[in-house]
Amino acid sequence: MTLNLTEAEMEALERLCKQKDLSKTAVIRQALKLYQMVDVRLAQGDSLFFEDKEKKNKAELMVL
């Protein structure tokens, strides 16, 4: 399978590879695992939140 990515997507991918010390394939696989996990939880009726501990606020992340 060939993956067609825009320049910006490629840049983001390369940055993640560097930060996470992973190959491009490994980053894509991590992304897929997380996306699937989130999708399953949302389908079960759960919500996804980001929490800022210092400001003590929570924001729901909308995943469409």
């Binding site: 930060q19 010390d21 992973l22 991590q30 695992k33 997380l34 996990m37």
Partner: peptide, 16 residues
């Protein structure tokens, strides 16, 4: 589980 957990030791902090 192989996703969603980040390392805490300084030398590998936030790595998968």
């Amino acid at each position: 589980v192989t996703a969603g957990h980040a390392c805490r030791i300084a030398e590998q902090k936030n790595k998968e």
